[in-house]
Structure formats: structure tokens, C-alpha cells
């Protein structure tokens, strides 16, 4: 019973997080939603592992916690390097009087 209440609470939170990820509107909403869904998955796994009487399956929850962290770092790095590149391109543009650099004219 305890498990059912806990799991129901977690799954409803997952649904709300998914709603936020679908609606957006900004990318940060989505990042936060993914992060939250990851945390809820860890919780759900831990709950289920104990409810099924197999606490050794907590290994999986640890994996999720570790992997989730890497995902968030990847998102951070993605935006960080994209902002840097944009700033660099803007600087190059203004320095060459609006001339398009080879990085933009080159074939994809």
C-alpha cells in the first residue's frame, strides 16, 4: 500500500514534468523537465526495487543518478560552446566589416 501511494505520487510528478517538457516554451524549461524526470525515475526504481523485494536492483538507480548528471553537463556544455561560437562569429563579422568568414561560407 505504501508502495502504491509512493509510486502513484512519483508517476503523477513524472506526468507533470513531461507536460512541462512538451509545452516548453524556453529550452531551460525542457532541460529542467528532463532533469526532474530523471530524478523521478531514480525514485521510482528505488521504490519498485524494495516493493519487489530485490534491494540489489538499487544498482540501477545508482546508474541513473550518475548518467543523469552527465546528461545535464552535456546540455550545459552545448549551450556554453554555442554561445561562445556565436560571440566569436559576431566579433569576426564586425572586425571584417560584415564579411562572411570561411566558417559560414564553407560547404556543410
Amino acid at each position: 500500500m505504501m508502495f502504491a501511494v509512493g509510486a502513484a505520487a512519483v508517476t503523477i510528478t513524472m506526468m507533470l514534468a513531461l507536460l512541462r517538457a512538451l509545452l516548453g516554451p524556453s529550452v531551460y524549461d525542457r532541460v529542467l523537465a528532463v532533469n526532474m524526470l530523471g530524478t523521478k525515475t531514480v525514485l521510482l526504481l528505488a521504490l519498485t526495487a524494495f516493493a519487489m523485494g530485490r534491494p540489489d536492483f538499487i544498482d540501477l538507480a545508482i546508474t541513473y543518478a550518475l548518467i543523469n548528471f552527465i546528461g545535464v553537463i552535456a546540455v550545459l556544455q552545448f549551450f556554453y560552446s554555442r554561445d561562445l561560437r556565436k560571440a566569436e562569429e559576431r566579433a569576426a563579422k564586425s572586425a571584417h566589416g560584415g564579411a562572411v568568414g570561411p566558417s559560414q561560407a564553407g560547404p556543410q
Binding site: L18, A21, G24, V27, R30, V34, L37, F78
Partner: peptide, 13 residues
């Protein structure tokens, strides 16, 4: 980017 984030959610589910 939204697509990539949703794929991550799909995988978790």
C-alpha cells in the same frame, strides 16, 4: 533541441 530532450525523456520512461 526540444526533440533531443524529449528523446531523453522517452528513454527514461
Amino acid at each position: 533541441f526540444a526533440g533531443v530532450m524529449l528523446m531523453g525523456i522517452f528513454s527514461l520512461l
